[in-house]
Write a protein that binds this DNA or RNA. Structure first.
Lengths: 201, 201, 201, 201
DNA sequence: GATGAATGAGTGTTCATTCAT
DNA sequence: GATGAATGAACACTCATTCAT
């Protein structure tokens, strides 16, 4: 890993635990193993590290959203028979590549902390945790409705319930304490139970 | 308001917006209108302010929980006919005296920020936002089930859905950006819509 | 003990261990069990405590010197046969009431510390540890010489040797570490050995 | 002189006059002509300055002791006729390079002040002022006894008297007030008188 | 790419002291 | 006699940042 990447990695870990202001350049450099003056070769200033992290996160989720769009649309294009496969694919992809992804998880924590005094972060936080997931679910279930799997009129409340349940679980298990395997499993189990009851039973 | 109370008030406002470490004693004193040395007459050190806030919050929610217990039990004792009154009472009481209460709301934000590097706060955060509300809902709906208003076997999932929906709304509207009247109304409307669809329609 | 005396007692203990400047009014009051503002009822300011201690020490040693004068002169007046009794009396009196006396011992330590930036204390320190003891020994041995116990011409060097030996022992055992019983005994033994060899053998 | 050395130099001067705790980082930096933050580039904290001084003193006296050992042994090896030359050499070396040496003298004063609440310093103080000098004298006089210059049985008391006399003079002239040329001369004269009377006359 | 040396502003905290009660 | 509340100045120490090398 390049020094620049190492700095961003260490900074994210610290920012997401103690908050941006509470972490010092000294702290970061100490952990990375460089002198403070060296950091300024790689970044203009402290704010630049935060901005770079946000930028990286932005392009990361842009990629995710693009990929999700593809998954959502593809089956229809390729004429697959079972449409609920796409639902599962979308959800498991979002869980693995987004909620369980170490970089994204730490970014969400950082945004959770920093949203209260940084409007840019607040907007990104709201989009990423509330708006986008709701939109994605909407797309999936609208497609299922079009395919006749569920009634058109139920779509809104199905999405609201599904989205609220997963959001609550995210805050309860993934944005609370350390992201341990135990918590991930608890999250997964509760998601599965909900899905099983709601869509299978 | 006593100097001590003023300090706690200002400190909470600042801590909940920028995080504990990012707020300086100077910041607090400047806003309160006292010298730094005066603050140290009222508090042992910076940590003591945070501890005092947590202690105040603890006894505050202890009072709330006691009151909720009373409301939940009373109607049955006094032989009131319609038991779902208690449900409404409990919910509206919790919303007004807890979620919409300025002190509690700011404490929740503070805990949201500080939970990541303070285990005591993390435990309190989990209890206050996830465990306690779930328990309260459980008590209410179990009572409704006993009264025959809903089937015994549905209780668990009704509570899970209700709790998850209200929790998501709390994070979306009450622990996101400033707590404006607009956000409070949006929260209230969505809670009402959910309740109406779920329990009335 | 009056509050004023308690303050002086505690202050002396702390000053003699950590030095005047390094001890705070808070430290003293904490140990005495009073509030800082109370101290200012008894003393004008911090310096006033030090001055009072020095004044007390001054009158204390004035009393000692007066008493020593009496002992040195009395035997001759009253026609006692053995004059070396006075030597022993003077020395044992000085040891018990001065070097081993807790108040005097702590004052010597305090003066040892403070002499380097307080000319008044430096003068008192020099007088008390070097000038006065030399004078006292001189008076005693001159009297012994007059009584024919030792040759007149030996007086100067006898005094110089005796004084230097006792001074060295004072620094080595009484003004070094805590004044324990063990150290006192070691001091006493070495004084006795020296006297035995020098004057008896 | 490097910034680090300048800091140590100034710190020693101030510590030895007012005591460690009574000297502020501001005081030192003001005298050195640097900002406080610069000092912390060179030293971890205030204690680190003291520790560095002690370390420097330790290696300084280790060097001295080594050199004294050489002087004490050499003449015998090289078969010099007059052994009392080594006595003079040792004493004058110790006086010039130790007692009169500005660094050592200030360190002794510092240790004299700080011994009362720092056990490490107390031990070093005792070793440097009482134990080591006594040992050195012992080695010298034992050698003189072996060479037949003085009777074996007198060694102990000769050393005790010589050591006590020089120690007293050290406290009286070298560790009392400023170390002026006048005081050095007074010290030198009294040492010379004592030696003359004791060993020549 | 990286560092040694420096800095002005700011950190939490303690200082001796005052004064009305 | 004693205290609660306050203060300005100082404390040791850390901050993000610069710049010549």
């Amino acid at each position: 890993m390049s020094t620049r990447d190492k700095i961003m990695d260490v900074a994210l870990n610290m920012f997401s635990e103690r908050g941006y202001e509470a972490v010092s350049i000294r702290d970061i450099c100490g952990e990375v193993g460089i002198k403070e003056s060296t950091l300024y070769y790689h970044f203009k200033n402290k704010k630049d590290i935060l901005d770079s992290l946000i930028e990286k996160f932005r392009s990361h989720i842009d990629g995710l959203l693009l990929h999700v769009d593809e998954i959502t649309e593809k089956p229809a294009k390729k004429g697959k028979k079972s449409d609920d496969i796409s639902l599962q694919m979308v959800d498991s992809y979002m869980i693995d590549s987004y909620l369980f992804d170490p970089f994204c998880n730490l970014m969400l924590r950082l945004m959770m902390i920093e949203q209260f005094h940084n409007e840019e972060i607040r907007a990104l936080y709201e989009k990423t945790l509330f708006t986008d997931p709701y939109e994605i679910q909407m797309n999936v279930f609208r497609k299922l409705a079009k395919a006749g799997a569920i009634p058109e009129k139920d779509v809104e409340w199905i999405v609201k319930e599904t989205h609220s349940y997963m959001t609550m679980l995210t805050f309860k298990y993934l944005l609370n304490g350390d992201l341990t395997e135990k918590r991930k499993k608890a999250y997964y189990k509760e998601v599965h139970d909900f899905m099983a009851r709601r869509f299978i039973a």
